[in-house]
Simulated scan of single mutants.
Amino acid sequence: MIELQRRYTFKKTTLLKKVTNLDDYKNHAGIYILCLSAVRGYYVGQTAISLTKRIQQHWRKPETDFDRKYREADVTEIYVMPLDISTVYEQFGLDALEGDYIASIPDKFLLNCMAGGNTIIGVKSKEYNPADFRLPTEPLNDLKDRILCFQKEHDLA
């Protein structure tokens, strides 16, 4: 988690927020990370609508292998990166950010099955190379700048 927080710090502001009240993010799109300390793992997800609703959906409407295997009680911490999807190049930017997050987590701690975004590549397959999903510095900094501006505007920074 420390490495992800470093990667997603911009102008001395951490864009990845530790959740104390999930309802604070009901009106925000973004990236989220579910931390499961018992298995020392992380699950990365995204939503273009409501972080609160999407995270709760994991347990209210289990649809994925992750949802069926882990319960709400297994999650010890939640981190979110609220953003305005229109300022991060719509779904394309959201997919790129999710892929970058997934690629930034060492395989042994990753609970995701897919590489993220609109890809169908599994993270355990031979075709998956995390380096292919890591964002280069310049585009990543552009996205981080846009996210920081949004978070400051909405008192989330």
Score class of each variant (00 low, 15 high):
D84V: 04
N112Q: 04
D132R: 05
Q91D: 10
E138P: 02
P139V: 02
A103M: 08
T20W: 03
I78Q: 00
L83P: 03
E127S: 14
V88C: 01
V19L: 03
I120Q: 14
V39I: 11
I120N: 14
Q151I: 04
Y89D: 14
I49N: 15
R134S: 13
P62R: 09
W59E: 08
Y25M: 03
L143R: 09
A131V: 12
K124A: 08
L83C: 13
Q5N: 11
P82E: 07
D24E: 15
P130Q: 06
E153T: 12
K69M: 01
C149F: 14
L94S: 01
Y70L: 09
R60D: 10
G122S: 14
E63M: 11
L15A: 08
R7A: 02
T47Q: 05
I102L: 12
L36F: 09
R40T: 03
Y128E: 08
K124S: 10
P130H: 07
A48C: 04
F150D: 02
A115P: 01
A131Q: 14
N21V: 09
A115S: 15
L36Y: 11
T137R: 15
T137V: 14
G117K: 09
Q57F: 03
V75M: 05
Q91P: 04
L110K: 07
P82I: 07
F66H: 07
V88D: 05
T87K: 10
L110H: 04
K11W: 02
V39A: 12
S50H: 08
E153M: 14
Y42A: 00
I147K: 01
A103R: 04
K144A: 02
D74V: 11
T137H: 13
D24N: 15
V80S: 10
L4Y: 09
C113V: 11
R146G: 03
A131D: 14
V19A: 01
T76A: 09
S86V: 08
L51Y: 04
G99C: 15
G99P: 05
K144N: 04
I147Q: 04
P136S: 11
D23V: 02
D23T: 07
N129D: 13
V19C: 01
F150T: 05
K17I: 15
I49F: 09
L111Y: 00
F150Y: 15
D65T: 08
L148K: 13
P106R: 09
A103Y: 10
I120E: 12
V88Q: 00
L36I: 15
D95K: 05
L15V: 06
N129Q: 11
T119Y: 15
P82D: 07
K144M: 04
T52A: 10
